[in-house]
Amino acid sequence: MVFDVVVDITHREGISDPEGATIERALPALGFDGVKGVKVGKTIRFSLNSEDPASAKAEVDDLCHKFLSNPVIEDSTFTVTEATGS
């Protein structure tokens, strides 16, 4: 089965996010006064061939911990959905 995978990587709680903080500081100058808690992360998308949804999720979880995120400073979440037309 082919799955569409979207991995979302963010800074762990307590790890400074200078990019997020800098964007947040810039917003009031543009008139956006109500924005708080800006966090900058990254999104990684790919397709994955795997036996079934459970094995796909296990594989992505492993991939996130071993390579796509650095668990010392980053958290990762992901969605795995069956690819349309597969």
Binding site: I15, S16, P18, E19, N70, V72
Partner: peptide, 17 residues
């Protein structure tokens, strides 16, 4: 070395970017 786990911890972006 940090990414290779030969040393603990990580290097993140400088404070103040």
């Amino acid at each position: 070395l940090a990414e290779s786990h030969l040393l603990p911890g990580a290097l993140q972006k400088n404070a103040g970017l």
